[in-house]
């Protein structure tokens, strides 16, 4: 499969169809996989595809530095393709400006599959320009995609609060979660706004709560569960849980799942006069 990927990228670069390919690279075989930006046809040999290709490369599509390279091709897994849909919905990416190479994926992570891969429903990416590879892998039957949240919600509110206190106690406000998220593309994050200061910037529990609530809610109806925030968090905070909770909420109340269909209007910023409101007096 890797040869096919490299050949596809080489052809695109040689033909001048694209100026850059956003792909996975690995400096040494035991080292971590990282994104690479291939601009020369011969450099396609540096591209890798293996179980360590966690990163959601669509994050880089909105970066100024990458945009300045010209028209891009990008490797996406099924999960990453969903964030691309959101980026298109939110006018961050013009779909026709990107050549999307979908990779059939049976999951990343070794020896153990990443959590998100165990419940993956998009082994074959959709909405791409070309797909490389094939897989028979399918989502496990009758799975509950929010099992994690449901399990967590069995705890009492006090236990849940205690859990998050423990988690956010460790947050050092490095904003790696923000940096890696394909959907955190603001020019200036609200947390960096100082007139007025909406969110306390110091890494106190107070500031950490405000920040993490804000981060999660800004992804409401947008997060596609690529899981990158959780993977990169140096403090090991289970951020995915909050995202999943909101995804569950969006599906439950508004029958909406982010990144599934570019034609469905996003859940925030639209409404239905008949939306339920049993919590409002």
């Amino acid at each position: 499969m890797i040869e096919e990927i490299r050949q596809t990228c080489r052809t695109l670069l040689e033909a001048g169809t694209v100026n850059v390919v956003i792909a996975y690279g690995q400096s040494n075989p035991d080292g971590p996989v990282h994104p690479i930006f291939v601009t020369k046809p011969d450099d396609v040999e540096k591209i890798v595809w293996n179980k360590q290709c966690f990163a959601n490369l669509t994050t880089y599509l909105t970066r100024k530095e990458v945009k300045s390279l010209g028209k891009a091709a990008i490797l996406v897994k099924g999960c990453d393709a969903r964030s691309l849909v959101v980026l298109v919905q939110e006018s961050q990416v013009e779909r026709s400006d990107v050549h999307v190479i979908g990779l059939a994926c049976e999951g990343v992570g070794e020896p153990e599959l990443a959590g998100k891969c165990r419940v993956c429903e998009v082994h074959m990416p959709v909405g791409v320009d070309v797909t490389i590879g094939s897989t028979e892998a399918a989502a496990p039957e009758g799975q509950n995609r929010y099992a994690l949240v449901d399990e967590f919600m069995k705890k009492s509110p006090e236990e849940r609060m205690a859990f998050w206190k423990q988690e956010f106690e460790r947050c050092v406000r490095c904003y790696a979660c923000r940096g890696v998220c394909p959907l955190c593309y603001c020019n200036q994050c609200i947390v960096d706004k100082n007139r007025p200061v909406v969110i306390d910037t110091s890494a106190t529990l107070k500031g950490n709560f405000a920040w993490n609530i804000t981060r999660a809610f800004h992804l409401a109806g947008r997060c596609v569960s690529c899981g990158e925030c959780t993977r990169v968090c140096p403090a090991g905070i289970d951020l995915r849980m909050l995202n999943a909770s909101l995804a569950q909420s969006a599906e439950k109340h508004f029958n909406y799942r982010a990144g599934m269909d570019p034609e469905t209007p996003p859940v925030i910023g639209t409404y239905n006069a008949e939306d339920k409101e049993n919590f409002i007096r």
Binding site: S91, Q92, C186, N187, Q188, G269
Partner: peptide
């Protein structure tokens, strides 16, 4: 306008 990320949530809303 310098800060706006042009996500157009406001346009939609």
């Amino acid at each position: 306008e310098q800060n706006c990320a042009a996500c157009y949530a406001c346009v939609r809303t």
